[in-house]
Design a binder for these strands. Sequence first.
DNA 1: CTCACTATAATTGCATACAATCTAATTGTG
DNA 2: CACAATTAGATTGTATGCAATTATAGTGAG
Lengths: 141, 141
Amino acid sequence: MNDKYDSLLLKNQLCFPLYAVSKEIISMYKPYLDPLGLTYTQYITMMVLWEHDNIMVKTLGERLFLDSGTLTPVLKKLEAHNYITRKRGTENERNVYINLTQVGLALKDKALEVPKQIAQCLDISPDDAKKLYKILYKILD
Amino acid sequence: MNDKYDSLLLKNQLCFPLYAVSKEIISMYKPYLDPLGLTYTQYITMMVLWEHDNIMVKTLGERLFLDSGTLTPVLKKLEAHNYITRKRGTENERNVYINLTQVGLALKDKALEVPKQIAQCLDISPDDAKKLYKILYKILD
DNA sequence: CTCACTATAATTGCATACAATCTAATTGTG
DNA sequence: CACAATTAGATTGTATGCAATTATAGTGAG
């Protein structure tokens, strides 16, 4: 009923459903983010900036669990869209500060619809959502 | 205490911790998969094949939630490593069947260590793990 | 039987992710 | 002060992921 290879069955993995659900939910964002001209990664980047403007790339990376190798190209695209600006710090030339433009700030109001739409698509009970959230942050910390 | 933009706070998202935890755990696999010459995507592909050999790319894609655009390059790499073979079906030329080589099959024994090591690194209670697993599969189905 | 339709992979283009390396700036130490 | 060590970003290389398109092979309605 149980052999030595059971631990290698896909259905006995915890990481795989995490990976699959993560991708599936991110793909649900696409139709709602496309009108805003944002990808999912760009969206969560904007979310951090909407909460706290004028932050360093390093801080952004810590909040999003992303390194400069990922963030630099993302930020350059957001800058090309005129949603943000990138400026070297005067006190310390190593630091790059990200700031929202008027356009980027204005996008916040349009983005309000996104979480609403996703909540409707996502078929999960409030109880499960709460449990899931808690367990995930327990792992992250 | 509560403003109209609360729904856009990173900490109020359910998808973000899913995405972050998924990435963090996948990165934990790297030191254990490197000696096997596998990436995480290649590893879960091999897991499906270890469970059921001689399956079509389409079936593999359904199990892994990946499309041919992702799988074709992954499978070509596994073929280049001599872990698998790819053969067009004789009954239906559209189908491509994937089979393990002797080397690929032998890798299964070495891979047995991987889930053991990951379980040790992953600091999560059995109860939380069970809850998490159930909720994730509820979403996937 | 034929031709539109469908199905399966492969290909192409774009956007991440991350390891490793590099550059420039800053800091700590003797 | 001099200089090794550290830090912040950028760059490079490799490997996904996914949408859209293409190529080829089967299928089915008339």
